[in-house]
Design a protein around this nucleic acid. Structure first.
Lengths: 164, 164
DNA sequence: GGCAGTTGCTTCGAGTTCGAAGCAACTCGC
DNA sequence: GCGAGTTGCTTCGAACTCGAAGCAACTGCC
């Protein structure tokens, strides 16, 4: 039987709650803007942004799903929508016959360019405005190791498929 | 005409991306634990936690919705589920006939107590572990003003009028 | 008082999300 | 090579989510 974990002290609670709250509010605001400006959901925007940033403008499905923290089936659905809208293309991977490579189209890049200024403005206005540049830097420096830790820590869900 | 917003510099981008990523990963991990340990979704847990913290163990629906950043209709649905599970009670508000007061039940408090230790453990393990206590304090101090700023900033309709 | 506008909650429909199951392609050991 | 196990993606069903529309109770202004 594991030790009962000690309760969180006020600083820890404060950091945790503030993090969740800030992320929720920010996501909400961004979602609204993306919907208005370019009829994109947040996931769709994240996917396009990742593809737009990639050297060849493409990624495998699984890498995309992991990158944006999304289920595989959910990604299949969203990739289908984006493809139907002409913003991405899907093609079987060259080296692995069962992999699918998703590539952003010119229309996808245009859409990205269309929503980006407003997106930046929202992030600036909601998240960055109350912070000095040094504080922003400090925030990034605090969160980056946490992200790396989370990415490398065995999340219970990453347990390989099922044990017989 | 407003200036085109300047692009985000690497620190700003880093803070923004890391924030979203950390929140997504953390939420995912927590969701899993809550599902396993007590068959609760994250929203349901947040609702119970807020009610458990409240002086009288109760809140109005709208305050709950705003508190956890959730749509009203979604809250109606979730409150219905929690009520059906016997974890909360709903009753018309005394002072405002159209308001509904949601109150946590003993069963609700028990469920909360049941999942809480595991919850804390996940938060500790995923979020807090890679940070010193001073860093946790710094993180809370950085995020709190941002949250307050977001809460007090006109959430929508800040968009300039568009053509009909 | 009364009536226009607001607020608090629910209903409804459409769209989305996820996990489990399923299929095809790859890998490894022998 | 051959089979067992793994991996990449999709399909399927059920559950969740949201905004718009709707209804009842409150408010303000005259």
């Amino acid at each position: 039987m594991p030790d009962a974990p000690p309760a969180l002290d006020p600083d820890e609670l404060g950091a945790y709650f503030a993090l969740i709250e800030v992320a929720s509010l920010l996501r909400h605001a961004v979602e609204q803007q993306l919907r208005d400006a370019g009829d994109l959901s947040y996931v769709q925007f994240q996917l396009l942004a990742r593809l737009g940033d990639a050297p060849a403008g493409s990624h495998r499905m699984t890498d995309l799903a992991d990158g944006v923290v999304y289920s595989r089936s959910g990604l299949t659905y969203q990739a289908g929508l984006l493809e139907k809208a002409g913003l991405v293309m899907r093609a079987p991977s060259a080296d692995d016959e069962r992999g699918i490579t998703v590539t952003i189209t010119d229309a996808g890049r245009e859409r990205l360019a269309k929503v980006f200024p407003g997106h930046i403005e929202v992030v600036r206005h909601m998240l960055l405005e109350p912070l000095s540049h040094d504080q922003v830097k400090a925030l990034a420096a605090l969160l980056a190791p946490v992200r790396d830790h989370m990415r490398s820590t065995p999340p219970r869900s990453a347990a390989p498929r099922r044990r017989p």
